[in-house]
Every structure is written in C-alpha cells, then in structure tokens.
C-alpha cells in the first residue's frame, strides 16, 4: 500500500490540518508520500520532509499551482495517482474543493470526512450532521479520502527525514484564475485549533454585541465562533461558523452563548470535551449536550463572566 497525502499550504507554511491527514494515512498503513503543489514553495517542501513517518515528498512548483485552483491541482493529482492505493487530504475547504474533482477524473468514489480507519478499505464517516455514523467499504482500486481532522491526532511536525523529489508537472487548464483572498483578522486565535472557543448565536442580537464575547475570549486565550443563525443574520462573517456546513471543532472548552442548539450547529461542536451553555430559554436543545448549563440573560451573564475571569 502507498498513501499520497495532498499538502495544504499557502506557499509559506503547511496547514495544521494536513498533519491530521498524515495520521490517518499512518493508520491505513504502508508508505506515506506527500504532494506539495504550489509556486515558490520550497520552504513548504522542506517542512513537509520533517513530518514524522513520511517517506518522500514530491514537489510540483509552477505558477498554475500557486493558489490551489481545483482544475489545475486535480489534474496534477491524477497524473501522480499511479501506484497509490490511497490519496488523502484534510476535509477543509481546500480538500473538499479539489479531492472530489480528482476522484471523478479517476472514476472512483470519494470517501468524505472519515472519522475512523477500520481497515485499508473500510472507514467510518459521519452522516446526517453526525447523528449517524456509517461504516463503508470501498471497492475502488484507489481510495480518495478526506479526513475529519478532529478525529485524528496531528502527526509530529518534526522528526522525519523524507527525501524531496522535484516532479515538475503543473499545467494551467485555462479554466479559472485566482483574483484575491480577504483573510480574516490575523490577531484572532485560530478557531480550528483553539483549546477554548466562545461562540455566539442569534441571541447575541447584533454583531456589535460580539465584542462582549471577544472580551471573554481574550481572557481565556480563546477563539470566537458563531452559529449559522448568527452568520445568517449577518452578525459575523462565515469563517466563524461552527456546524455541519461550517467548521467542525473539538476544543477542551466550548462556551455557547445565546445559541439554541440546532442540529446542524451541534454537529460542529458536540465532541468538545467540556460544553457550557448560556441561554435564557431553559428548553433550548443546547442544554441537552451541555456539561454546565446556565439559564440566564446573556447580557447580564456574559459581563459577569468577563469580570469573574
């Protein structure tokens, strides 16, 4: 068996999510190769070669690969697929965008968002917003997989000494071009890797009121998240969304403020170690998953919490 893990990066740094996909590959077994496709991404290749357990790093450096455009990157993955039994990426917006395209070109299924490796061809994946877990067996010669990062520990970023191979390749399919990226505020703690997350829902009533949560978050070294309702209402941008169709996270502490606990929100946070719910509606479903519930007006409770910390 040979695993090819597609490295997510910005030509400077490897995304932490990739380390979790490497662990999934380790559990599948066999050799692990990484594909670093980008432009002026030599530093990323060097870092990739340090990841523990990796045998080899293939590097494709071309302007057409600079921004991870799906058409160009999927073409490269298909070119490189020969000899691999498993091709993996993390189930981030990067992996979700490119991997199904590569799978279709290879005429194989994709196994999305795996939560467990049962054997080399059998995997557990959540369906219905995590309210059911399907165990599926693949009959394809090549298994294209995206990995639910919270279900696999990160591989050690150092300790390996993989060989680095320049593979060339990379061609512009001529279908799309990258224009720009508006990146969220860099001062914020990263939502997907934060140990503590403070999230607000529709009960926050406005985007301005999220400053209360930021204040609490600052004291806890926490990231700020939000429910889909808060995003839908325009209080906060979508990258803060925690849920079935947003980010799936599992921090040590998750504080849900003014969040009712819709099915699709619970899907994104119910594997947090400790869940706190603050809501004025004692019947809110969020209390069914909370370790500590406080039935209170959030506009009184949150400032009080802020001063108590």
């Amino acid at each position: 068996m040979n695993n090819l893990v597609i490295v997510e990066h910005d030509n400077n740094e490897i995304a932490a999510a990739t380390l979790h996909a490497v662990t999934a590959a380790q559990q599948i077994g066999g050799d692990i190769h990484l594909l670093v496709a980008g432009h002026n991404c030599g530093g990323v290749a060097e870092a990739a070669a340090q990841i523990a357990g990796v045998a080899s790093v293939k590097v494709a450096d071309d302007a057409s690969l600079a921004n991870g455009l799906a058409e160009n990157l999927a073409g490269l993955i298909v070119e490189q697929a020969q000899g691999y039994s498993h091709i993996l990426a993390s189930a981030t917006t990067f992996g979700k965008n490119v991997m199904p395209r590569a799978a279709a070109l290879l005429d194989v299924a994709q196994i999305s968002d795996i939560a467990e490796v049962v054997s080399e061809d059998t995997f557990v994946r959540p369906i219905y917003a995590g309210n059911a877990l399907a165990t599926v067996q693949s009959s394809d010669a090549v298994k294209v997989i995206t990995v639910r990062t919270i279900k696999f520990e990160a591989a050690a970023a150092e300790g390996g000494s993989a060989s680095i191979e320049q593979i060339g390749g990379g061609a512009d399919a001529g279908l799309s071009s990258w224009i720009s990226q508006a990146v969220a505020d860099n001062d914020q703690v990263d939502l997907t890797s934060a140990k503590v997350v403070v999230s607000g829902g529709r009960g926050m009533q406005s985007g301005d009121n999220f400053t209360m949560l930021h204040s609490v978050a600052d004291k806890l070294g926490a990231a700020v998240g939000a429910s889909r309702a808060a995003v839908d209402s325009g209080f906060v941008p979508n990258e803060l969304q925690v849920g079935q169709t947003g980010k799936v996270i599992a921090p040590d502490l998750y504080i849900a403020v003014g969040i009712s606990g819709a099915i699709q929100h619970l899907a994104g946070m119910k594997e947090s170690k400790v869940i706190v719910a603050i809501n004025n509606d004692s019947e809110a479903p969020i209390f069914q998953v909370a370790d500590y519930g406080l039935v209170a007006d959030l506009f009184e409770a949150v400032p009080e919490l802020d001063s108590a910390l």
Binding site: S176, S177, W178, Q181, A182, A184
Partner: peptide
C-alpha cells in the same frame, strides 16, 4: 467572478 467561502475567509476567483 465568484467569491468563495473558504476556511480562512473569502476567496475570489474568475472562471470561464
């Protein structure tokens, strides 16, 4: 011209 919701924020691409 399409603005896409990605993990880091918003990405804009142009597609034929």
């Amino acid at each position: 011209t399409v603005t896409r919701e990605v993990d880091a924020g918003l990405e804009t691409i142009q597609v034929k």
